[in-house]
Design a binder for these strands. Sequence first.
DNA 1: CAGCCTCGAGTTCT
DNA 2: CTCGAGGCTG
Length: 697
Amino acid sequence: MKQSDTRSVAERIEALRHEIDQHNYHYYVEDAPRISDAEYDRLMNELIALEEAHPDLITPYSPTQRVGAAPASAFGSVRHAVMMRSLANAFDPEDVEAFDKRVSDALKGAGLLAARGDVDYMAELKFDGLAVSLRYEQGQLVQAATRGDGQTGEDITANVRTVRSVPLRLRGKDIPDVLEVRGEMLMTRRDFERLNAQQQQRREKIFVNPRNAAAGSLRQLDPRVTASRPLRFFAYGWGEIRLRRKDGQVDLFQQEAGDADMPRDTHSGMLEWIGELGLPVSDLRRRVKGLKGLLGYYEDISERRAELPFEIDGVVYKVDSLAAQDVLGYVARAPRYAVAHKFPAQEETTVVLDIDVQVGRTGALTPVARLKPVFVGGVTVTNATLHNEDEIRRKNIFIGDTVIVRRAGDVIPEVVASIPELRPENARAFTMPRACPVCGSAVERLEDEAATRCTGGLFCAAQRKQSITHAAGRKALDIEGLGEKLVDQLVESGRVQSLADLFTLNVLELSAYERMGRKSAENLVKAIDKARRPELSRLLFALGIRHVGETTAHDLAQHFGSLEAVMDADEEALLGVRDVGPVVAGSIRRFFAEPHNREIVRALQAAGVQPVHEAAPQSGSLPLAGKTLVLTGTLPTWTRDEATRHIMAAGGKVSGSVSKKTAYVVAGEEAGSKLEKARSLGVTVLDEDGLKALLGL
DNA sequence: CAGCCTCGAGTTCT
DNA sequence: CTCGAGGCTG
């Protein structure tokens, strides 16, 4: 009785283990789960309960054993049976062409390729994670190791056992005696974001990118921590392989042994075989022919890169035939039959040479990192804003530090994090100056504000220059030919002290400035004259009142109709304007209460500046009345401004961020995060033609 | 009062 | 483009 009980329990345990393994396989390898998470948990809980009642039946390959063993004090080292090599890199099509030519020539010489034939390649993704080697003996996972120096790596078996997409047992009938699988451990972007959100909540370390998160998770001395981290594994190669022969003898094959009796005779075939044994293999690999095939794959993957759930840093090309691989052999530490075609790096490390402080139009002191020039994402980056004091402290950046610089989806470089481990002894902490570096006025930092500001106001040359550049800008008075360089000269010479002084400039005196010929001076004077009849909203925006940007200036102009009315408006009147609250109203009142500012307005009027009333929006049923649209990417024929004008003319509004209230997102080439957001919120996405159709064009 | 929605401001390099 | 912050809404 007792005997049979135990046997049926053992059978049930084994059945549960098998079933759970199956579901892991469906989930991680086939990417097609067949049961809900809740059902999965139910199976797991039953197994845990049975094993707890019968500890003698626990085996190392049971799925319950993934929860993580007790912490270790250090990692042991593992010598790889077959070296883990690195790959040569290609950075542009010419490098790839050279690779293809070398391969073709060698294979033709060896009689493995017809004179005009194209080489068969296997192309696959180059995952941005950590290379690891998994060793299976008799079908069971017995060891996992990092790459290390290629010869010797660290023993991370206890950690890897917790990774669900790594099978603890191989599947299928013809299981090799020994199989070393090489592949990449990584984290999907979604899992990475979720993990970071969690880390933030628990006030624990935030990871810089998915690769660091994966690396940090694998290098935990406590496997229980690793067990809580969402790691994934993809196989792309192999090391030692021993197959069992029919006569019971064991055959030894190695990646470089050059044997005709591998289970399959191509690289792609081998990966299929590895997949059949239950290991996850990416299905974005493809067999292609010749140089054209390689470059076509690269282009295709480049386009799909953003949609991939995980990060890749390029693609890898391998000669598909194993016999051909043997002929090509190795050079130094890399095989001659393979190459990694890398995307332009989006992240690089460099050194912070210094931290300067810039003074902005509103007096905000902005620290800027001067970087050792570094090539990131296709351009050389030398500067990056550090925003403010808190940001520097948060990212723990010292002058002299090695830092990670990113040029993500957008264009603007960003210092992502510092690497304090590489901090030199003479590194200096940054301190915000107590006096403005431009005018020497005291600086202040208001409570609840991130910015430190110069108190000099328009006495400060930096603020004066930038307020004038701002007023001359395209969205303000739109004075063509008045750029930053010229404003610098005009202000430094003392000729221009305020916006009003611009309107007293003449051709003769302008010609005296650098890079100002007679012709340029004449054009500039004409442009300035044109600015004497600005739309009221543009003039209001040009004044540079704090918290009054393009939109608010427009609303104020519509509401009050004249500059005088805005100047004389009291708090209550201002609060009547939509989107104007106490802060904005106070800012406007303070601006016009300042005698200096009233004087500038008076001088502008004296110089003949007279705002014109803009056309009130037509009422009636316009096609986009009441709708908010968001533009992203580059449209084929319209500029952003043109599209905005058309939309506004049709009664619509253009906003910068996508939300549930957004009616349409108009996406062009290289649309970024806004397109993704639109999709996730289910907002209708249009192209330029779709927009034109709505407008009835 | 919290959470959402916008607006404003600052920023890089070619 | 992103972040911070003001204003509005539920």
